[in-house]
Write a protein that binds this DNA or RNA. Structure first.
Lengths: 122, 122
DNA sequence: TAACTGTACTATCATGAATAATACAGTTAG
DNA sequence: CTAACTGTATTATTCATGATAGTACAGTTA
């Protein structure tokens, strides 16, 4: 479910955070799904529990999960998260396109690039 | 010409590198323009000469400038760099669009976003 | 020749990521 | 009830990286 890439320059806690956010946003993890415990996941990934704790705190701060002392951490309802993320994707795309325009890339080229994308190539 | 943003999480040498790359790619610095010397620029920015040295080494590695011991560093010819950067922009845009597709953003939304961009809004 | 250039090297410091080891409080299955 | 699990918090240590500081050497130029 989670893989750590030690060639990735990003810190481990960030990779874990992003990976779970991705799974939740793509609907791979249902609402109220019980997340692996901090200690269990740390064991599985052969890393320190504090690193997982940091990732879970960040996921909770961003609304992806909720944690209950003694019970565990669970996936939060994700409808508004999905909507927010789509808006964020569009914003990032617009920003990147604006930048590309400044470097001389044309809107036509960009639109053609998007139209050429094969759907479902994950 | 160069400004350091201490709120930017990126290291200083990277900010300097990216800023010069931007100036060169946008044609603000002509070929063979003499770059400020390592020590001069360090003085101006109130940072360490080694930090500028690192930025210039990176700029040279990426083909933006060339350095001559005793004479200085100079902007390299930038035609192929510009072409390469436009291709890179398009690739990044395509990658981001592919990712957005996986999160449920439609091509139509993306294309509309691009079409709405006001040109020359830098 | 003096003052400038790039380049290289070593040492030091601050910061953040990660580890390590506890500790405490709440939950739950046996 | 209790043992074993949960999340959470805290402190100390290690390590890598960015940045600073100081020095040195080689080449250029007015």
């Amino acid at each position: 479910m989670i893989l750590i890439d030690y060639k990735d320059p990003r810190p481990i806690y960030e990779q874990v955070t992003e990976r779970f956010a991705e799974l939740i946003l793509k609907g791979a993890l249902e609402s109220d799904f019980k997340m692996p415990s901090v200690r269990t996941l740390a064991m599985e990934l052969s890393i320190n529990p504090n690193t997982i704790q940091k990732a879970y705190m960040e996921l909770e701060r961003r609304g992806f999960i909720y944690s209950v002392k003694g019970r565990g951490s669970f996936v939060a309802g994700n409808d508004s998260l999905v909507i927010r993320h789509r808006q964020d994707c569009l914003k990032r795309l617009g920003d990147l396109a604006s930048e590309a325009l400044e470097y001389g890339v044309t809107k036509k080229e960009m639109i053609e690039t998007i139209e050429k994308i094969k759907e479902g190539k994950s």
